[in-house]
Design a protein around this nucleic acid. Structure first.
Lengths: 239, 239
DNA sequence: CGGCCTGTTGATGCGACTCAATTCAGGTGG
DNA sequence: CCACCTGAATTGAGTCGCATCAACAGGCCG
């Protein structure tokens, strides 16, 4: 379990400036943040924190991918969020008394910045701007979660997958159009768990999309072939 | 659409003191809040705000019940949250640029306090304690939403219903034990939409619970008869 | 009384999960 | 370089939960 991931030196302050959560902060606040941030690395499959454990702090992901999961006793798991580079996670827990609401696991070798709870809370009280950013970040999370709930309860798997593709495309290119491509960030099994289904079902749905001409696939790289068709599928409700 | 609900005079400041969001605030902050709060009433079925509309402010529910819903074009709806007296709603939207993430509808004649966005934001910047409370409230919401997501993706209807009963019981009596009773706050159709199912399925599940001796029911009043059985059902995973 | 809404119960069908077998890709070691 | 292994992805057959459609009972109100 020794961390064999190479730790790359980080210009902490420079990195922090890019994070939405810290945008518009005074320079000395950034300085403070850079000082309390701790560089950490996790190898693939390593657990970053566990659901229910008291929150020690929160994280910014610099490199790799992380999954935030709820898992059942029997080993089935639902992926609440797939975290990519530049995103923060575990923010909500530093404010709550109830510990981390999910578990976090590295999907690949990862590099993160860790902010200990206490130091961060101090800064939070001192900087109204940081508090405001934090609130905005959390409302964004809330927004996203309510949409996931909507999808899960009202839409079938194909609609959820179609929506995922469209979002991913917009996220990558800022637009949705025929011919645009993007990579699946994680394995299909993980994607399935994120969409609230299982890999077999995802596989079949994907096959249907291809046969309909909605998309094409080449080694985990997706090409949008029929945006309007995808939009229609994404709108679709249960049966 | 004339509001025929009788408006009861409210000691705003006294009421505000009871709200978690405002706990520990300085007295003059409470004074300010009381001044910006606007008393409003909504009759049954009235829409308080719509999903997607720009947020005007947020609300504290004083009397009645409100549902926060996501609805599909075809008219099916999922109830994200059932709001009862003393609870706040629409908080997240005042921080986001994206408008209300859900629609809010009065299930009965309701009385609310409304806080206009701008005034509230001013106070938020001025009072670190209020900002902190707000963050805590939102992490609590996040926590709850992640659990709903978990339930929806990993658990079947019976488990969700069992969990709901247990939570409702603890919420009402602070404890879970055989013989304790509580009222269903809303119609069974609404409860079904909250649990991510439909009234028919809820009705059947309820009948099974009764025949198993887990609960008893008398005109919308539920009695817990077998807490451990309910716990087991609530743990149960899909199939 | 007669409409209307809520709730209950039955029959049916579809989506998606389960189980199981097979193929494929990547990585390792001889 | 090929044989081997492991985990991921695919495909098929069977089953189950639950939504749908439909009929009906009870309570409330004009």
């Amino acid at each position: 379990m020794a961390n064999k991931v190479k730790e790359e030196p980080v210009q902490k302050k420079k990195v922090l400036r890019e994070i939405y959560l810290f945008s518009g902060l005074a320079d000395n606040d950034l300085e403070t943040l850079a000082q309390i941030a701790i560089n950490r690395i996790f190898s693939k499959e390593a657990h970053i924190f566990w659901e229910g454990r008291e929150a020690q702090g929160f994280y910014i992901l610099l490199k790799g991918h992380v999954k935030l999961v709820k898992s059942s006793p029997e080993g089935k798991e639902y992926i609440i969020r797939l975290v990519g580079p530049g995103e923060t996670f575990g923010e909500a827990a530093v404010l709550a008394e109830s510990g981390y609401p999910v578990s976090a696991t590295a999907l690949e070798d990862c590099q993160v910045l860790f902010f200990p709870k206490i130091d961060f809370l101090d800064l939070l009280t001192a900087s109204p701007r940081l508090a405001r950013n934090m609130l905005a970040t959390m409302s964004h999370l809330l927004f996203h979660l309510t949409r996931q709930l909507e999808d899960l309860s009202l839409k079938e798997v194909s609609a959820r997958l179609a929506r995922y593709f469209l979002e991913k495309c917009r996220e990558t290119h800022g637009d949705i159009a025929k011919g645009l491509t993007f990579d699946l960030p994680v394995t299909k099994t993980h994607l399935a768990a994120y969409l609230g289904t299982i890999s077999e079902t995802l596989s079949r749905t994907l096959a249907r999309f291809k046969s309909m001409g909605a998309i094409a696939e080449d080694k985990g790289r997706i090409t949008i072939n029929d945006p309007t068709l995808l939009q229609n599928i994404a709108q679709g409700t249960k049966s």
